[in-house]
């Protein structure tokens, strides 16, 4: 394949990474922004989303479309409930102390991972996409008779992959509307800005925290359900999303949702390009280096506010 179409393909693959990463990282960022909790178990909530998706779709094996729709609804809901319970039983009791929450969520990470290994097993398990039509994509060539459309062999994608990108955009837009236009969003922001004064205005901050923690985990799970037909479910699959989410959240500026989305798109696309042209390992190395530079030269992230 020529360079042009090859790059186009890499960008397309990168967009899928970016879409799923944006959902996952926004979940992490939301939890950090509102609760000041660094959730090390975030990747495990992602993994649980994929595992529940497998579980739900395999129960409804005869109806892959129905199974997938139900997985899309119920896997994030279940994961959100588990996360909210975790918050209520563990994080609340240690008073959201920053160091202790890191240690506690590391514990949660291993508990979830090992319980999944014991029940789901060590195999990677596939989930069938609800629809998956291959489509060829055109490219243009500037030949002797001007611009012409060509259909390079191997340049294509699937309807499902495109749907993942669209779904992520729609979900992020909906989240943004909820945060900026609804009473729920106002409650979350008030809690974030001054939890004592939120309490003094009747806001049950404990419940808001449980909900936000659940919402953050549910976003990761949503990303996982969307990507599992492309990737398969596996009990160790949480590590990469966790690392990449941290990278994105740091580059985007801790707690800045817009910065997180922009950084996710940037990291996702460059991950796609570097993986296709060089190697996936190099992509991770470069991303980690970028984080190191951001931390040194712009510790509040490229989009974060400077400390006052």
């Amino acid at each position: 394949m020529d360079f042009g179409p090859h790059l186009f393909l890499a960008l397309l693959e990168g967009s899928i990474t970016a879409a799923v990463l944006a959902l996952t990282a926004v979940g992490l960022s939301l939890v950090f922004g509102i609760m000041r909790v660094v959730n090390v178990a975030h990747g495990e909530f992602f993994m649980l989303g994929a595992v529940f998706a497998w579980w739900i779709t395999s129960m409804l094996g005869a109806h892959p479309v129905l199974g997938f729709v139900l997985a899309l609804l119920f896997a994030p809901l279940l994961v959100g409930l588990i996360a909210a319970t975790t918050d209520y039983l563990i994080l609340r009791r240690i008073n959201y102390n920053p160091e202790r929450t890191i240690v506690a969520t590391i514990g949660v990470l291993y508990i979830i991972q090992q319980l999944t290994l014991m029940t789901f097993g060590p195999e990677a398990r596939p989930v069938t996409a609800p629809f998956n039509k291959r489509i060829a994509l055109p490219w243009f060539e500037n030949g002797a008779d001007g611009f012409t459309l060509i259909w390079p062999w191997g340049l294509g994608t699937t309807t499902y992959k495109l749907a993942v990108i669209v779904a992520a955009v729609v979900i992020l837009l909906m989240l943004w509307l909820v945060l900026t236009r609804t009473k729920w969003g106002l409650i979350m922001r008030a809690t974030q800005l001054n939890s004592d004064m939120a309490t003094a205005h009747g806001i049950p901050v404990d419940k808001v925290y449980a909900m936000v923690f659940g919402l953050g985990a549910a976003l990761a799970a949503l990303g996982a359900v969307l990507v599992v037909p492309i990737q398969q479910a596996h009990y160790l699959m949480g590590a990469d999303p966790l690392l990449l989410s941290f990278i994105v959240v740091i580059i985007g500026g801790l707690g800045s949702l817009l910065g997180t989305v922009v950084a996710a798109v940037f990291i996702g696309l460059s991950d796609g390009i570097i993986s296709v042209f060089f190697s996936p390992t190099l992509a991770k190395i470069l991303a980690t280096l970028l984080v190191a530079f951001v931390l040194i030269f712009k510790p509040n992230g490229l989009f974060g506010k400077s400390a006052e």
Binding site: R189, A190, A198, A200, V205
Partner: peptide, 30 residues
């Protein structure tokens, strides 16, 4: 603590305790 304001006790703290990044209207709304 969140039930205290329902008893009709209001609190204006030292340093004002506003929701700084929210608008005047949103502070009122809370």
């Amino acid at each position: 603590a969140h039930q205290i304001p329902k008893q009709k006790i209001a609190y204006v703290p030292q340093g004002r305790g506003l929701f700084t990044e929210l608008s005047v209207a949103q502070n009122i709304e809370v």
